[in-house]
Design a protein around this nucleic acid. Structure first.
Lengths: 347, 347
DNA sequence: TGAAAGTCCGGAAACGTTTCCGGCCAATGA
DNA sequence: TCATTGGCCGGAAACGTTTCCGGACTTTCA
């Protein structure tokens, strides 16, 4: 049958060189003359040759790929689709600079993720892994540490001790949001959040409570409302807030897309978002900034964030598993992006 | 140095079997006794063994992976925010059923895509490719046909003749939208679209014109407004429409996210979306259905669509390049999902 | 001028797996 | 009882590449 594509042997035969020389020229080794190198490069370009990745991987034990695992049942996670695409815009070039491909592996639901990852590691699908949507207790982290595979967790976790992770400083966001609303005169500030298994939600909620206390606003557990992090969740949130006897005058959202459902329900109840209920969202994006009133939220450059993530996983890969170095932990600040959804309380 | 993971030799040694027998047992070959098979399966589970993908790929010439190439500079494409993840929810399980991994390859901008793909094919990164966001003239299609690589284009194109593709029936959507608005009494119906290089935009616009003519509404070129397919584009669109002397009473959107900017600008101008300007969007999603007024648009099950896409690429891969069979071309209908954004004209 | 060093290249082994080929053993049939 | 068949298994080749090793040739230095 004969593989169809052109291989290194074809290039070698074409140039009357040995395959070893061609290989050396392609890989930028020093022991090859400049003349031969350009010859090989031109020939491989003309013949459309690029080394077969399987052969290459087998020989040198690396796949030249970094895997970003995501769950496809999104809509039940912190990260929306706009998040990943924005992230990849910075991540992919950062990896390409080091000759690494970015492959995104959809792993199905959260439950399936660990098993999928276990198999992916055993099959040696990638040189390094980035796991997203970290849970408070996350078996994937222990797994990767145990296997000695380079990885970076996108989001903190209680699992695994001092591995490399990158995360947004959500605690600071909660703090800033509460402080801002408090300074505007709000005293009953609600929190729209989600399941606490997602670590970001836990941290956010914790920081919210601390901020409320530090501003002398108490800590009424009724003010914490858990809903799905989606536009629909915003509806549920609004329903819950409107049903309260002592209605809050402001709400902080862990997921900015909740604002869509929230605005809708408020309007349906004859209330004006921003005026009758102040709201502050989480991550600024193309939807929230065009809401009316524009949602006050927090900004982060996903491109930079992704580029940093790329640098971190490259660092892990180059470090090897030789030194059990703890890896870098990095918290990214978000800056307030004022909209007009957080007015002082009406009364 | 010694590769760290457990290999087939470890399993064989552990069971005092030959590697060939272990391999046969793992791959479900017939020439192995049932007893040995269960033994091998249990042992590989216990030892955490899964065959190294590089070795496997090299030997059998297949990678057991399907690549979905996407551009990361999204926001300038037809596919909105939530399209790909919804698609993968159906696509990934459909592939997994056949033992194939789905890997998403972010290829950078549209310009970089073809070169990236060319290299990916030469390196044999995947057994089959799915290319998205097809252009009217798309070099990737000619490339893949030329190389004889199994592929499915997600979206039609003028390039390449009769290859396999899957697409939404956007012409029918344009037809339905215009018909609905016309039956409500609208006579000046604008179109918010984008660059015509994207083939869907071309088809959509063509169908819109035909529908306008068939309803006796003429074909004023000024009614076709090209803007970026993003919330911002909706602002530009609104500005353009409001500046017209003979202002349209309705607009059809090729990209539903434009509605966000459109609503915003209309409200800023003291107008009511739906009342003062009827609007119909394209694909229903979690954002549009919570807009106020809810955007009338068209529904498609992305999960089913993705599952079908998976079946198609599996079919192409199994077909091999032996018969130059044309492949399947399939157009998916979308069904109207009525909102309240398309009222009769005010006057 | 001779030896040492340096430059560049070819042959062959190796990576982990699958599969071809041949062989052993038991069962079957005459 | 012997030849044949079929079930099951082990040895070894093969996939495409990189890299070790050694060799040929040129240059440098004493």
């Amino acid at each position: 049958m004969g593989r169809q594509g052109t291989g290194i042997r074809d290039v070698a035969r074409h140039l009357r060189l040995s395959v070893s020389t061609v290989s050396r020229a392609m890989n930028g080794r020093a022991e090859v003359s400049a003349a031969t190198r350009t010859l090989v490069q031109e020939a491989s370009l003309a013949l459309g040759y690029a080394p077969d990745q399987s052969g290459r991987s087998l020989r040198q034990g690396t796949t030249d790929a970094v895997a970003l695992t995501i769950r496809t049942d999104i809509g039940r996670t912190m990260m929306g689709e706009t998040f990943f695409l924005g992230l990849c815009e910075g991540l992919q070039p950062a990896l390409a600079e080091h000759g690494l491909d970015l492959v995104i592996l959809p792993c199905g639901s959260a439950a399936e993720q660990e098993q999928y990852l276990r198999r992916a590691v055993a099959r040696r699908l990638a040189d390094g892994f980035i796991i997203s949507d970290t849970q408070r207790i996350d078996g994937r982290i222990d797994l990767l540490i145990d296997r000695g595979v380079p990885f970076v967790a996108l989001g903190r976790s209680l699992s695994g001790g001092s591995h490399a992770w990158l995360d947004l400083d959500v605690a600071d966001v909660a703090d800033q949001a509460v402080a801002r609303l408090a300074s505007l005169g709000h005293r009953r500030i609600a929190l729209g959040t989600m399941r606490r298994e997602v670590n970001q939600a836990h941290i956010f909620e914790h920081a919210y409570r601390a901020a409320m206390r530090s501003h002398g606003l108490g800590c009424d557990p009724a003010l914490v409302v858990r809903v799905p992090d989606a536009p629909e969740g915003g509806c549920d949130l609004a329903d819950a807030l409107l049903a309260m006897a002592d209605r809050p005058t402001a709400v902080v959202l862990l997921q900015e897309t909740m604002a869509i459902g929230l605005y809708r329900r408020l309007r349906e109840a004859g209330l004006r978002p921003g005026h009758d209920l102040a709201a502050i969202g989480f991550r600024e994006n193309r939807v929230t900034e065009h809401l009316t009133p524009a949602l006050t939220c927090f900004r982060v450059s996903l491109r930079d964030y992704g580029a940093r993530l790329g640098a971190m996983i490259v660092d892990r890969i180059n470090a090897g598993s030789a030194p059990p170095s703890p890896g870098i932990q990095e918290l990214w600040a978000m800056t307030l992006s004022p909209g007009s959804s957080d007015l002082p309380p009406a009364a």
